[in-house]
Design a protein around this nucleic acid. Structure first.
Length: 523
RNA sequence: GGCUCGGUAGCUCAGCUGGUUAGAGCGUGGGAUUCAUAACCCCAAGGUCGGGAGUUCAAGUCUCCCCCGAGCCA
């Protein structure tokens, strides 16, 4: 089976912010989970590089649009690489192959009779790249979102006949699971119910875009071009772009993850475009929420923007991933609070999970020749920790399928908590002082080591690096869920069996797998 | 202006089709312990469930109005 998922193609107007990082981290966890399950994954991200806004930003910086995009997209690429994002593809809409794809796609849409000319007059926001509904006679109207003056436009554009797809889209949107979370569905339903209007797919006098074949002077509207980037990305960079081959390359996508602000484009315009071109539709569009910081919207004017590069530098990947995935319900809006961030990272990762492994490993080494103790009763499937582990695995699997990272994380945490409590109940440090209890202690420690191993295994999609360190400390081979080299062997599922640790196998000297986070200054 | 989604302990959230003293984790306070990253384990305090009215034997849970936040459409 293959599993294709995408982040949005981020607009190359400016560098990455926390929101795009959040989206990308979540997708990374999904991609890794699917690889670990044995799926052939194509995880797509990239940059959307056309449009008037970029052209103007480049001009203002004294650069050509291409040079500007080269710089911005390179910065994205490097950022994702530093976050160890496991994307298989990074597509840029200025890639020459993308132009081929757009041309092929447009030819289909045009052949379907879905392209018509129309005159468009109105006030236009360059930042939104959209016409606004302000009345024609308005004096100096402003964009309510960007607080910038609107520009008067009067042009003949090409329109996509969205209105023809009214019925089909209504049906699609009703389909359970297409729009997720379900709470966002109503909004789109209402929008469609108002009656779909054709939308323009070209601009005139905008050189920074892909020329529309057969329509001199027109370039494609940036959204039309950008969405198609998901398709271009599926082709191997070395192979020619051929729309007929799309389905062999992993289309349709199982999942588009986006911010809730662009839900309409993905749940309405995009499916209609695909229908017109005779291509299958993505299975699911997931619109997640936005992040605020300490209760306030992040913005340049407030000067409270949290820079993902700074965050990475000062806190590390595991900590940030954990906080964002474990504390913010995926789909809802969330608030980044520094105190809570450090509290959770320290409590969950360092104290509960890290210390569990550390204390157990240290006892095992001390009393059982630096090795995994004889398993005895600890290897039994009926051991309380074995039962807990298998419940946890089921819960984690289900939660991850539902993209509910928070529930998955909590389940893992609970397993670690159960194991910690078990240790306190059994108190091996006391038992070891009594003669004849050595076998029982060995079994207890074995079981707790196994539980720790399960914690590490289940953590692999969410926190690949911490999982890695834990498994090494247990003398196990870590999982490879990265792009391209990801194992896809089912090793991860096979590791979800009680009793994998071999008694007498050497245990490396323990060192803390997770440092506590001490932030002396605000981020 | 119309619509959507939220408003439950200091913080983040659970509470299905209405039904015993409203739950969890973090944080706070206390206890116990020493294997461990001053960690782990146990216990406790903390809520008039945004406000008001209504339906009902019974409402955080249903209806209406209002307030606040986020968003969609005008």
């Amino acid at each position: 089976m293959s599993y294709t998922l995408t982040t949005p193609l981020y607009y190359a107007n400016d560098r990455a912010h926390l929101g795009s990082t959040y989206t990308t981290l979540a997708c990374d966890a999904i991609a890794r989970h699917q690889r670990l399950r044995g799926e052939r994954v194509t995880f797509i991200t990239g940059c959307d590089e056309h449009g008037q806004k970029i052209q103007r930003t480049a001009e203002a910086a004294g650069l050509t649009p291409q040079a500007h995009c080269d710089a911005v997209s390179e910065r994205y690429r490097q950022l994702w690489s530093r976050w160890q994002i496991s994307n298989d593809r990074f597509i840029r809409t200025t890639d020459p192959r993308h132009r081929q794809l757009v041309e092929q796609f447009f030819a289909r849409v045009e052949a379907a009779g879905d392209v018509v000319e129309g005159r468009q007059q109105g006030w236009y926001c360059v930042a939104c790249e959209e016409f606004k509904d302000d009345p024609h006679e308005a004096q100096d109207p402003e964009c309510p979102i960007h607080r910038r003056p609107l520009e008067w436009r009067d042009e003949v554009n090409l329109f996509f006949r969205l209105s023809r797809y009214q019925r089909q889209l209504e049906e699609l949107i009703r389909r359970p699971g297409f729009i997720a979370p379900a709470s966002r569905r109503r909004e789109v339903e209402n929008f469609v119910a108002q009656g779909l209007r054709d939308f323009s797919i070209s601009r005139v006098d905008l050189p920074w875009g892909i020329p529309v074949p057969g329509h001199p002077g027109h370039t494609f509207y940036v959204w039309f071009d950008a969405l198609l980037g998901y398709l271009t990305a599926l082709f191997d960079p070395a192979e020619p772009v051929r729309l007929e081959r799309l389905q062999e390359r992993g289309w349709p996508a199982q999942l588009h993850v986006i911010g809730k602000d662009i839900l309409r484009f993905h749940a309405v315009y995009w499916p209609a475009m695909l229908l017109s071109a005779g291509l299958p539709l993505p299975e699911r569009v997931f619109g997640h929420g936005f992040l605020t910081r300490e209760g306030q919207k992040m913005g340049k004017s407030l000067g409270n923007v949290l820079d993902p590069e700074v965050l990475l530098e000062r806190c590390g990947r595991d900590a940030v991933r954990w906080y964002l995935l474990r504390d913010i319900p995926f789909g809802d809006d969330g608030d980044f609070q520094q105190q809570r961030f450090t509290d959770l990272v320290n409590s969950d990762l360092a104290n509960t999970i890290g210390n569990l492994l550390n204390r157990t490993s240290s006892m095992a080494r001390r009393w059982f020749a630096a090795a995994v103790p004889p398993a005895g009763a600890g290897a039994a499937d009926s051991h309380p920790l074995a039962l807990a582990a298998s419940h946890t695995a089921a819960a984690v699997g289900e939660a991850l399928e539902n993209l509910d990272f928070r529930v998955a994380a909590e389940a893992i945490l609970q397993l670690a908590g159960t194991a910690n409590a078990y240790l306190n109940d059994q108190a091996p440090w006391k038992a070891m002082k009594q003669p004849g209890r050595e076998t029982a202690v060995a079994a207890d420690l074995y079981a707790v080591l196994e539980a720790s191993r399960w914690v590490a295994v289940l953590l692999a999609p969410l926190l690949p690096e911490l999982s890695d360190r834990m498994l090494r400390q247990l003398g196990q081979t870590p999982f490879d869920s990265s792009a391209h080299t990801g194992q896809q062997t089912g090793a991860w599922l096979a590791a979800q069996r009680w009793g994998v640790l071999a008694s007498a196998a050497a245990l490396p000297e323990p060192e803390p797998v997770m440092q506590r986070l001490e932030l002396d200054a605000p981020l």
